[in-house]
Every structure is written in C-alpha cells, then in structure tokens.
Design a protein around this nucleic acid. Structure first.
Lengths: 222, 222
DNA sequence: TCCGGATTCATACGGCTGTTTCACTTATAC
DNA sequence: GTATAAGTGAAACAGCCGTATGAATCCGGA
C-alpha cells in the first residue's frame, strides 16, 4: 500500500523507476506536442511502460501533467529564491540593482535550459495554453516567487508606484517566457536573417533590457 | 467550379456566409480551447452549419486554422505598416523616437483586442503552440512586419549594433505577446493582489517599458 | 516456504476524432 | 425550362482517445 517504507533498496527492479520513466517521457512529449497532442499511449511507449501504469501511478492524465511541472519547477524556483536571498543578505539593507534582481529570476531558467531540461519549453506554454488544468497550477508554481521578487523590486526602486512595478514585472516575465520557449522566433520570422546570440550573452541582454525597462522614467501618457 | 465569378449578389442565401460563420466559430473555439481542444463538431455546431461544410470549404482542419489567422492578421499588419509609413513620412529623414515605433507595432493589436477580436489571444498562442502547422505560418504572418520595423529601429538607434537590436526586438514581441494573451497572468500569479491597468494605460506602459529597454546602454557583460 | 500487498500486463470499454461518401437541394446560365 | 454546377445534408468510416478491469507476476517479511 505504501511504497515509500521499503526498508531495502535494489530489491524491486524499478519500484519508482517506472514513475520517473513516465515523467521523463511525458515531459518530452508534452513539450513537443502539447497536452492534448501527446497521447498516453505515445508516452507509455516512449517510457517502455504499460499503458495502465500511468493511471496506476498518477490516476489521471491531468495529474500527470501537474506532476511533470512540479518536479521541475520546485527546484527551479528554489534556486531563484536562494539567489534572491543571497542578494539581500549581501546588500545588508542597501538597495539592490534591478538588474541583479531580474538576473536572479531569469538565470535559473537559462541554466535549466542549458542543462537540456525539456520542461522549460513546457513552462513557457503554461502562459499560453488555454487548458484550465494548466492555468490552475500557475499560482501554485509562481505565486511565492512573484511575491518575493515584487517585494524586492519595490525596495530596489522605492520611488516607483507599486502598481507600475507589478505591471512591468508582467512584461519582464513575458520577455523571459517568449525567449525561453521560442528562442528561434525572430529567426523564423526574419527568414533566417536575424539570429539570437548564444545563451550566456542572450541571458545578459535580456537582463539589461528588462532592467532598463523596469527603471524607466514615466513619460507623459496619451 | 469558381464561386468568385458570381455576376450577381444576394441570390444565394449565404454563399460565403457559411464560410464566414465557420471562421467566426473556429476563431472563438480555437482561442478558448486550442487547436486540438476545439473539435470540428463543436465548431460547426456553434456556427449552425453542417459538419461536412468545413471540409468542403477548407479541405482540412489545419487549413481552417490558417484561414482564421490570416483573416485577422492581414488587416492588423496592414495597420501596423500604415502607422509606420505615416511616422516615416512625418519624420522626413529625422530620427523617429523608439517609443513611436513600438507604439506603431503594439497599438493595432490593442485596438483589435478592445474591438473584441478573439483572434488576438490566438496570435499569442502561435508563439507557444508546438504544432508545426502554426509555426509554419508565423513567417508568413510576421515576416514583412518584422523586417520593416527592424529597419526603422536601426535608423532610430543608429549607434546600436543591428544584432543587438534584433535581439531586443525579440524581447519586445515577447512582452507584447504575453500581455495580449495572458493579461491576467500577474493577477492569477499574485492571488489577485496585483492587477494590470486598463487597456489604454497598459498600452502606454508597455510602450514605455519596451522603448526604454530598446534604447538601454549596454552594461558590462559577465 | 508461503502469504499478501505492490506492481505490471493484456485487453476491452464507450466515446469522440477528422474525414469521406453520396444523395439531395438550391440557384445560376443558356 | 432545363442542364449544370455549387452548396448542403445525414450518415458512416476507420482510428485513436483516456480510463477501467481482472488476472498474472513480482518480491519483501513472517
């Protein structure tokens, strides 16, 4: 009934190995074909696992999707918060530059992307996918991170109205999401004439861009 | 064989009316449920049209999707280019402010969104959707617009390396796309505490943000 | 050794999918 | 007025979908 109280290891050939193989395969196929486009049969076949295993271990396809997200995004968000913690402890009350804050938000995602983590493309899709199941887990995924980083930005740019900062943070997330999930968008749009730079440079360009946007003085509104 | 050579009108009760009803319904359901999630049966039922009509008029579901996109995006991009034309003719060789250029790019999309055009959410999804059919029509949709606006930005910011401008234009498109397709992202992420402002203000905030990012001085790269 | 829960397996279920067919009606052109 | 083509309609096609079932298998603990 409870597989976690196994007192010995390497006894069962793959007790939770099956679960992980399903998660790995689902991650790849969800990222490539979307939630509706990736069938459980394709997932279980790629995982070399019986079709019924996914319902046995995850009950439903939606629950599998959620598990795929949480497995990757929990450590990623922990990384983000750890970097922010370090920035704040280093600053010792002094204001933190906006660029450092957005770098703490964005860099972990780039690191995961470079590590070949296919779930990064999935994360970007969470913003665009209309399925309620995905939208419902967005706050769970990003809620704490958004709150912490918004608070840090308020301290970093104290003369900015909080509502404006929230609005601009939305734009930051947008630039980051598009860059992560469609890095070749500009290339395909410009018929191959324009190319994005390599990752470490691209990350820094994104940081410069968003930091400048965050700190921009307000112009006269039409 | 050729319906376009009809010499009279208002004879057939709804010759291409059926086609438009299908496009309208497909637009709504594609935007709400995605390409896979919106079935042809749901579309034809919403359009009060026979199921076979979509295959008769569009051959395939993919072709219907493409038709939905092109119907909305052709006039929208024409609007963008017209605004850019007007800016350039007004400037008479003088440099155009980056904010004016991005406004010409973004404002038409906001206008369409406010006009209740459900395809705007669809356009945002084109960046995130993995389906090859969608990605294939992206250059067709955005190619000319991207080239024209990139050239205008090069003239507006002549001291910027062209590659950097292309990269930053990618970020601009990302902020715009996320704002258009997930305007309540921040709200759902922050558990309702943060809200985006109303459209005209939001548009101007987005213009200020992206214009500042475009014109940002390059910092030292790590 | 044998029990009993945990896991895997093959298979089947009802239902929905995009597409096709062909009979039918409608409206135009001669 | 009649031939002709455009368009509509109801029904069916094969195929895949997520899920459920019940038997077979595995394996640690007594």
């Amino acid at each position: 009934m409870n597989p976690e109280i196994a007192t010995q290891e390497a006894v069962n050939p793959d007790p939770r190995d099956t679960k992980d193989r399903i998660l790995d395969a689902a991650e790849v196929l969800f990222a490539q074909y979307g939630f509706d486009g990736a069938s459980l049969r394709a997932i279980t076949q790629l995982a070399s696992v019986n079709l019924a295993a996914v319902n046995y271990h995850f009950q439903t396809k939606e629950a599998l999707l959620k598990a795929v997200y949480l497995r990757r995004l929990r450590p990623l968000n922990a990384d983000r918060l750890a970097r922010l913690d370090q920035l704040e402890s280093q600053a010792q009350g002094h204001p933190i530059p906006p660029a450092a804050i957005v770098r703490a938000l964005i860099a972990p995602a780039f690191a995961a992307l470079e590590a070949g983590n296919p779930a990064i493309a999935l994360m970007g899709r969470a913003f665009a996918d209309p399925s309620d199941s995905l939208r419902a887990i967005l706050p769970e995924i990003l809620g704490e991170v958004a709150a912490r980083f918004l608070a840090a930005l308020r301290q970093s740019l104290p003369h900015m109205p909080p509502d404006l900062l929230a609005c601009r943070m939305h734009f930051v997330i947008g630039s980051m999401a598009i860059t992560l999930m469609a890095p070749n968008l500009l290339e395909s749009v410009s018929h191959g004439r324009a190319r994005l730079p390599e990752h470490p440079i691209l990350l820094e360009e994104l940081v410069q861009f968003t930091a400048a946007g965050l700190a921009a003085e307000r112009g006269a509104h039409a």
